[in-house]
Amino acid sequence: MNKTALSLAIVALFPAFASAEEVFNFYGKANASFQSNDEGEGATTDIKSNASRLGVKGELPLDSGIKGIYKMEYEVDIDGESEDTFKQRNIYAGLEGGFGQVIGGKFDTPFKVAQKKVDLFNDLEGDIKSLITKSDNRESNNLQYTTPSFAGFKVSAAYISNKDAELFDDEGNVVDTRDNGTSVSFAYDNNGVYLAYAYDRSVEANDWDVNRVVAQYNFGNLQVGGLYEEQEKADSSKQDGWMTSVAYKINQWTAKAQYGQSDIVKTDGETFSLGLDYKLSKAAKVFTFYTDETAAADYERSYFGVGTEFKF
């Protein structure tokens, strides 16, 4: 069953969710890999579900050229390791029109989205969340405004309300309340050139300021990208990190490499990944990857995997 037919079938089952004018889209991704993992105590093998997901999104035309928009997306546990088969990802509702877009719910911050696709091993072991950054966040109580695109330039600003959130110590005692946070990005995306600057204020933790700069360039079959990030904690200490990536396509093949260093997650963190994808169709691929990570205090990790990805 193709994507359109599947969406129409779901609409037929849930007629209250759709009208003749509504655009309704059911989608998903199944990504799983068979891996060998060496985390310092000998190699083990397992199946990993790499952020597989199911979701529904749509839009409903309203008056004056405005439309209502929504998205409800859940991660699906393919490998069966989690007690929860489904886990909430990006979920929101809002309005969109000539003024831009306003949404509210739980979703990726502008800071996180600013990385675009510079992280070529996103959702795999080489994901920049492993050693490069602590600030790729998906936040609840999130209200975001995004401007229309002006010749490729766009601004997104999010206000994250945490007035009822409490912070606990190791013994479970309330030690503080969580501040409200802000996340803002300024991005230019046009003719294969992507440039972005983003910052978070009190999102990762109270009185933490984080800045990020991203650049990516596509020309022909080659894509190169880089990211730099600086984190300042409440005690005024600073840590930074950077990474760079390159991908090259030859027919159905895509070769990928990524390298980075950072003190943000672990002191003297260093990560290196190689990958090779083979495109079976527009919606399917097989892939293999190798990731090596090191840091201070004898931290050493290495991963090798092969997997498949299907989008629908």
Rank of each mutant, 00 (worst) to 15 (best):
N2A: 01
E22G: 08
D123K: 06
D169E: 09
I69R: 02
K311N: 14
I132K: 05
S183T: 01
F312A: 07
I132E: 02
R212M: 08
L124N: 08
L227W: 04
A20S: 15
E96V: 09
D169H: 09
D292T: 04
Q261F: 02
A257M: 15
T45L: 02
S82A: 14
D164L: 06
W242R: 06
F86S: 10
E139F: 07
L60G: 07
E139W: 00
N141F: 02
V76D: 00
F107G: 03
Q35P: 02
K249W: 02
L167E: 11
T267N: 14
A247Y: 00
T244C: 09
V11P: 00
G28Y: 09
L167V: 15
F289W: 08
Y299A: 05
N218Q: 13
I128P: 00
W208V: 13
G181N: 08
F86C: 11
D189S: 14
T244A: 15
Y278I: 04
Y74D: 03
G275F: 15
Y197A: 09
Y27W: 10
I132Q: 03
V56T: 12
A18R: 06
F107P: 01
K249F: 03
D84Y: 10
D63E: 14
S302G: 02
L143A: 10
D179P: 05
L8A: 12
L95I: 12
Y197H: 11
K29G: 01
N206D: 11
S245C: 09
F186H: 06
F17Y: 15
G68Y: 05
Y299S: 06
D189Q: 12
A43K: 15
G104P: 01
Y92R: 02
E139V: 05
E22N: 11
N173R: 12
Q115R: 08
T146P: 00
T4E: 12
K233C: 00
G307D: 01
T146K: 10
Y92T: 07
L274F: 14
A157K: 01
S183W: 04
A205S: 14
Y303E: 10
G94P: 09
Y27L: 01
V265D: 05
V224R: 08
E75M: 09
Y188H: 13
G181L: 09
S237F: 03
G94V: 12
E270W: 00
E21M: 06
